[in-house]
Design a protein around this nucleic acid. Structure first.
Lengths: 217, 217
DNA sequence: CATCATACTGACCGACCGGTCGGTTTGTAA
DNA sequence: TTACAAACCGACCGGTCGGTCAGTATGATG
């Protein structure tokens, strides 16, 4: 049986290179700004070759986004709730979620742009599914922590989850801007950002006793 | 002296219509997706007429964004801190900031996209200036409230401001997605969102006494 | 070896892009 | 009325876009 590795690798290599280049360019510049010629050039193949492997620009984009979503979903699945008390678990989720976004910023940008730009289509559906999975995972954690008595019973886990995801997403999106804002010294310290955020989420920011407008046993 | 109103309005009318159309299309679809032909059509003039009034697509875009930034800045200036205790003033800022974004969503999208996409250029600079002004205004409010003793002295007003702006920006960006998430019942109630957020910001989410890891007099 | 399928590419296609050009229309001033 | 400037526009320009085509090269199979 002949060893045919040299013959099968170029093909797989091209598709991989094309997808990697596409993900990079689409993430950085968005769908409309990126031409197929640019993708081909970045992948080191001809444009016609790109069209040999992918039926259209749209298919290339959806494949790229799909891979990003799969990677994000794998990361979510690999997230272990582990041990610790409620707030430690919450803190761990915040840290791991933010760490994933930052260390896979290309994928994260692809997904987030679809969520934020709100253009109907397959791309948006894929990205929203990932977003929803993250959200539901977090709601489950928060609800569990609430059942254990760690969170005020008058609070909605759904709302807390929104705040948590929002804080992380905002950090990811605005990191570059924050670096240039006077007084911001945490733009390059995501873990510290997470710690400060969870601290305030847990204990609040008010000084001293607060008017008891809500129910807080 | 002849009254020459009929002669000066058509010109002003065209430019205004062009800018309005441009703002609308750029806000919805982004710079790259919008053609000058589309802008011209939406404004009811010819493409050549657009180029008569604006030197280039880029100039049209910058002018559109500039107007959006001016409007946003005017809104910030009109924001009165007014009376009330510290937390009432914070709540008012949150409400007014979010209300402005939602009621001027076209402008807000234009500005926010520049901040988030992070493409170097005039557009980014303009948007970041507005972002920074909002930020600094909020930091000043928070710092004042902290001096009055309403906020924990161990907290950084800059960080609190980041959380506040982030929460509002996230609500604005994700409103459409949130409408489709199970259990989210506040997507169309920004005021309620703001109230819940400030409540948690003030009192925290933890139930009962919390481990005193920080300084909280 | 012949056959077939896959990978690859330069050249080409029609459509569309941002922008220009020459001409017409409109408005203003003297 | 004439002269000028501004507004306006259809036609045009060179370039780029996504995509196609015909041909070549390569690899696998019988």
């Amino acid at each position: 049986m002949p060893v045919s590795l040299p013959s099968t690798e170029p093909s797989g290599d091209s598709v991989s290179r094309i997808l990697a280049a596409a993900k990079d360019l689409f993430a950085r510049h968005g769908y409309d700004h990126v031409s197929m010629n640019a993708v081909a050039g970045a992948a080191g193949v001809s444009k016609a070759n790109v069209f040999h492997h992918f039926k259209s620009k749209d298919e290339l984009y959806i494949r790229s986004l799909s891979q990003a979503c799969e990677a994000s979903r794998s990361s979510l699945d690999a997230m272990e709730e582990g041990d610790g008390d409620a707030w430690q678990r919450i803190r761990r989720f915040v840290d791991e979620h933010l760490d994933h976004m930052l260390s896979h910023s290309r994928d994260s940008r692809l997904i987030l742009r679809e969520v934020v730009e709100n253009c109907p289509g397959t791309g948006q559906r894929l990205a929203q599914e990932v977003f929803r999975d993250n959200f539901n995972r977090l709601v489950a954690i928060i609800a569990e922590c609430q059942r254990e008595g760690a969170l005020r019973p008058d609070l909605d886990p759904v709302f807390i989850s929104t705040l948590l995801l929002g804080a992380n997403v905002f950090f990811f999106q605005s990191q570059e801007v924050m670096r240039h804002l006077d007084g911001v010294d945490f733009a390059d310290e995501p873990s510290r950002y997470g710690a400060m955020f969870v601290d305030i989420l847990m204990r609040g920011a008010a000084s001293g006793p607060v008017a008891n407008e809500g129910e807080k046993p």
